[in-house]
Nucleic acid binder design. Structure first.
Lengths: 97, 97
DNA sequence: TTGACTTGTCCTATAAAGGGCAAATGTAAA
DNA sequence: TTTACATTTGCCCTTTATAGGACAAGTCAA
């Protein structure tokens, strides 16, 4: 999910991977993999990316987290049930902290 | 979430941690930690536990997965948003596989 | 051809899993 | 009020997995 967003941002801003790579001080292959969800994006890179693309980090963070969740449940049975359990629990914990 | 369930199961079956520990071939401290969510439960142990307590693994798996998800989003902002994004994506992917 | 991007392979460092041991604490009964 | 288990907690250790990243070679479009 994050990958697509990053690619889209880069393209609408008209940047080349080479340019973004320079800002993060990595090579272009690394950027390519981020945009294809083949490498996780570190919190640190996420922050830099939000600067490079001039958007609030808050716009990327949910996607970033979602990818991490996705990776936990992918190829696993009961993923949806698990997510619902978690949502319920969070809801529940909120009312009595 | 899983910990509480394991403890409850053990108690209603009237087992001691020592007995369960023997079945899994670990020490009682390890069982205690599982029941307090202080150590993750491996898939393998989960399977054994389902046998020890004579319940289908399917009764434990969602809780087990939920704990893993929880651990990803805990102490993180936008956890709920992320979960909702994931649920949407899964829903979406289902319709066009 | 050249420049942009992708893909595969490899390496290293760090973090987490899996687990033991000892000491502390809880608890019931003699 | 000791004794005897059951459980919990803290600390330690080793192994495995993953993150983070480089590099080379491949593909794709103009």
């Amino acid at each position: 999910m994050l990958g697509e967003k990053l690619k889209e941002l880069r393209e609408t801003k008209g940047f080349l991977q080479r340019q973004v790579a320079a800002q993060l001080q990595v090579d272009t292959a690394y950027i390519s993999k981020m945009e294809h969800n083949e490498k996780p994006v570190s919190r640190n890179h996420l922050k830099k990316l939000s600067k490079v693309y001039s958007i609030p980090e808050a716009e990327l963070l949910p996607l970033w987290l979602a990818d991490k969740v996705l990776q936990v449940i992918e190829k696993q049975q009961y993923g949806i049930e698990a997510l619902k359990l978690v949502l319920n629990k969070l809801d529940n914990d909120k009312s009595k902290p």
